[in-house]
């Protein structure tokens, strides 16, 4: 039984199986509300970053510190992970082939961890160069905005792990499916935020 209301999430819970449609819809709408609240948080961090761009106070500025190559590859990795998560949702929706669902989740997890590793390396290089957040208002703003996204990715990765365990324990039951859908929204949302970071922080930074 498919409820037309549910189609808007595009992922159609459980393909065409029975599921508590009302609960799924409430849960997913609720998660959208959470994401929008989170988006406000990021928007404000961006606004603060914008106002603090000039506040370098003699410390290393964006052009000197940002490694555009590294940021570019991070973008590619995260974008690909967004696609692989989409493939996992796709597999879940049509017949729920466990092999594909889990496989694509694992690929997404690996890509997410790769992203985190690269980002941690970037930060380590910056800190080694003396570009630490306590040097200037600009670096403070940078080290608030970008690591906040990073922390969200950490949360996303641990959520994937939890979901993998749940798939192993319960199979694809209703609650697992709803949570995979929410996690999907979260993961795609993080990619959207990263696009903004890549444009506003990195591309703008090296342009200056």
């Amino acid at each position: 039984m498919t409820d037309p209301q549910l189609r808007h999430v595009g992922l159609k819970v459980g393909g065409f199986e029975a599921i508590d449609v009302e609960e799924a819809e409430t849960g997913i709408f609720g998660f959208w509300v959470f994401l929008m609240s989170d988006a406000i948080l990021f928007a404000l961090l961006f606004a603060v970053y914008g106002t603090q761009l000039a506040a370098t106070a003699g410390a290393p500025g964006p052009a000197a510190e940002f490694k555009i190559d590294s940021a570019f590859w991070e973008t590619m990795v995260l974008l690909l992970s967004s696609f692989t998560y989409g493939m996992s949702s796709f597999a879940m929706k049509y017949g729920g082939q466990l092999r594909w669902v889990v496989g694509m989740l694992l690929v997404t997890l690996v890509l997410g961890l790769t992203f985190l590793g690269m980002e941690a390396n970037d930060f380590a290089v910056m800190i080694h160069d003396g570009a630490t957040p306590d040097r200037s208002g600009f670096l403070s703003a940078f080290f608030a905005l970008v690591p906040t996204h990073g922390l969200h990715v950490v949360a996303g990765c641990s959520w994937i792990v939890v979901m993998l365990v749940q798939v192993a324990a319960f199979g694809l039951d209703d609650r697992v499916k709803i949570n995979l859908l929410r996690l999907g929204l979260f993961w795609h949302f993080l990619d959207v935020i990263w696009i903004a970071i890549f444009s506003v922080v990195y591309l703008q930074g090296v342009m200056r």
Partner: peptide, 16 residues
């Protein structure tokens, strides 16, 4: 990816 469109079914999410 997030499947938001201008059709009726996504109205709640879209308005949000």
């Amino acid at each position: 990816f997030l499947h938001i469109d201008f059709k009726g079914q996504a109205r709640d999410d879209l308005l949000l």
